[in-house]
Every structure is written in C-alpha cells, then in structure tokens.
Computed example of a mutant assay.
Amino acid sequence: MIRVLIVDDDKLARKGLISIMPWSAHGMTVAGEAANGAKALEFLDQQAADLLFVDLSMPVMSGLELIQAARGKYPDLRFVMLTFHEEFEHVQAAYRMGVLDYISKARMELEDNEQILARIRHKLANEPEHPMTVPPSAQPASIGPTAEKAERNAPPPDEAQWRKLEQDWRSPYWLYDKAVFDRLCGQTEASNASVRRLEGLFLRVISQMEAALQLEAEFRLEAEDLRSAIERIRQYRKRIYAQVARSTDLTATAICILKAVLYIREQAARPLHAEDVAEHVNMSRSYFCQIFKKLTGSTFHDYLRQERIRTAERLLRETDRSVAWVANAVGYGDSKYFSHIFYEQNRLHPSEFRAQFHRGDD
C-alpha cells in the first residue's frame, strides 16, 4: 500500500482531498497531513511515507523548498504538486526536481478523481529506477462492478453549463441572497454532475468564503448522492448565519453585510433606509451601499424590495389574510402600489399568486 502525506496550509483543502479521493481503490492510504513544509519534515522524521501531495505556496517552507529538502533526506520519496494558480515557472521547476505529477486545484473539479489517481499510480509503477508494484487489490475493479458501471454510464454534465455553474458558485451572491442560492441549488441538481466533482467544487467555494468571513462552520463530506450533497451546502449556509447572528465582531466586512441581511429580514415590515442599516453595522452610508452591492449583487433598495416580496409570497401561501393586510405586514401602506411591485417581480397579482398556489387543494 502506497503511504500518502498531504501537505497544504489550507486545512479545508487537506480535509477535502483526504475525503473525496478514492485512495484505497488505487492501492493508497493517507498516512497523515501537515500544514507546511516544516511540519511535513517533522512527520517524515517520525513516520514513513512513499508519496507527498505538496501545495506549491505555503508559509514557513514552500512546496519547492520542501521537495528540495526531503529529496536529500529521503531519496525514494515521490511528489505530486498541488497549486491553485497556474504558476507555470514554478511547476516547470518542480518537474525538474523530479515531481511525479502536477494537479491544478482550480481544475480538479473538471477532472475525474479516479483518473487522477490512476495516472499517478501508473507513473509510480512505471518508474524504471524506482519500480513500485501495485497490489492486485488496488486495481480499479475493487470499487465494485456495480459502482464502476454506474460511474462509467453516468452521462457527463455539459462542460459549458458546468463552467457557468462553477462561476456562479464562486461568486459570493448565493451566501447573501436566498433567491440566488435556491436557483443555484436547482441548477446544480439538474446538472447531473458526479458527487465527487460537486464536493470538490463546494470545498473550494467554502474555503474562499471562510477566508473572507474569518469563520469556520462544519461542512460534512461523503454525500450519498447529488441531493444529499446539495443538502450539505444548505446546512452549511444555515450554520454560517447562526454564527453571524451570535457574533458581535464588526471588523470583517463580509460579516457586517451578513448582519445587514439579517437586520433587513427582521425590520423589513417597517420603514427602512440604507442609513439605518449602515448605522446598525457601523458603516458610513456610502461605503455600506458600495460594499452591499458588491457582495450581494443587488442595490440596497432592490434587495429590500425582494425581501419584502419574498415574505409576502410566504404570507399569501400560509394565511388567508387580505392582500391589504399582507401589504401592510411587509412594509407597504398602499396596497395598490404593493400589487404593482408584486406583479413586476412575479408577473402575477397577489390574488392570482395565492389562487395558483392553492389550486388543487380542494
């Protein structure tokens, strides 16, 4: 069994790589993990490893520095380079130092994890100066004929559609706007992407979010199917909001805007202005409006209107109260103006929306 050490300063990236790659199917086992090159050398002094997956850019000791140091002490070690950026000069330098393979983190979700490990295993087995026998149990068939057949027969998602979906997930809008989030979840479920590919994308997206938010919320891996993978991200988003609601820290801009979103939800039924929300999160009005648009994708006034209409939709579905009552409950004293705004967003008047929703109840 090939013993693997994962070396990356991004904790979430390490956990994700350990969880989503089919190590045992390719005769590999993860022996450990390290947050930087120095920690990796300490690990190697205590425990044996055959193959290191090494991040290119790390504090304390970079990936290239680690490879150079480890090759001198452990000549039989092999290396796979990981990097999020396409730093080709460094990649070429790594290959000159004997790196076995190179994996772009930015493109991992576009590659099949089985193929990545199969490619690496093949290179290990065919190094003439360092032959490495792969045990029969490590052949890909060990994942089971049913699972292998299902993976082989599953139609791949359209790549252009997937790239657009990936781009949308990488924007921050889904965290701040529930309508955007629900739309993305629906599109993702319809994409027919593999669970591993989706988990890889979610892990990268969450890593970016947590760097901006300076928060950590548990994200469970190893989903059973596409729906359960999407449910994982739904629960993650809820946990982020729960943490933000309890937090009193207003130093991180992203947290301030999330707090603003929560405040808008709470106060949407009363007259509400941008300066009120800006004051709530300790920002000037002009800066708040600028950063709110950047992170949510909507102006404050558009976002407030959408939130009010979303609440009105719920009240129309769940109550029998009059349209005038619903309008007042979401901050519109003029029911005719409310009906006009509601129609602009839904292409249905409030009474038509309610009738459509309740159709078939009788």
Score class of each variant (00 low, 15 high):
Asp9Trp: 01
Leu12Tyr: 05
Leu12Thr: 11
Ile18Glu: 12
Ile20Asn: 10
Met21Asn: 01
His26Ile: 10
Val30Phe: 00
Ala31Pro: 03
Ala31Asn: 01
Gly32Ser: 14
Ala34Tyr: 06
Gly37Lys: 03
Ala38Lys: 15
Lys39Tyr: 04
Ala49Cys: 12
Phe53Gln: 07
Pro59Lys: 08
Val60Arg: 12
Gly63Tyr: 03
Pro75Asn: 00
Arg78Phe: 03
Val80His: 03
Phe84Ile: 13
Gln92Pro: 00
Tyr95Trp: 07
Arg96Cys: 00
Gly98Thr: 06
Tyr102Lys: 03
Tyr102Pro: 13
Ser104Ile: 10
Lys105Met: 12
Glu109Ser: 15
Gln115Asp: 15
Arg121Ile: 04
Glu127Phe: 08
Glu129Cys: 06
Pro131Cys: 12
Pro135Met: 15
Ala141Gln: 11
Gly144Met: 08
Pro145Gln: 10
Glu148Val: 07
Glu151Trp: 14
Glu159Ala: 14
Ala160Asp: 15
Gln161Met: 09
Tyr173Val: 05
Trp174Phe: 15
Ala190Ile: 03
Ser191Leu: 09
Arg197Ser: 11
Arg197Trp: 10
Phe202Glu: 03
Gln208Lys: 12
Gln214Glu: 13
Leu215Ile: 15
Glu218Trp: 08
Phe219Cys: 01
Ser228Gln: 14
Ala229Trp: 11
Arg232Asn: 12
Arg234Thr: 03
Arg234Ile: 05
Tyr236Gly: 13
Tyr236Val: 09
Arg239Leu: 12
Gln243Val: 07
Val244Gln: 09
Asp249Pro: 00
Leu258Phe: 04
Ile264Gln: 00
Glu266Cys: 06
Gln267Cys: 08
Glu275Gln: 14
Ser284Pro: 04
Arg285Val: 11
Gln290Arg: 14
Gln290Ile: 00
Phe292Val: 07
Phe292Trp: 09
Thr296Gly: 08
Thr299Leu: 04
Arg308Glu: 07
Ala312Val: 02
Leu315Asp: 00
Leu316Pro: 04
Glu318Arg: 03
Glu318Thr: 10
Val323Leu: 01
Ala327Ser: 04
Asn328Asp: 15
Val330Pro: 01
Asp334Lys: 07
Tyr337Ala: 13
Phe338His: 03
Glu344Val: 04
Arg347Pro: 02
Pro350Thr: 02
Arg354Ile: 00
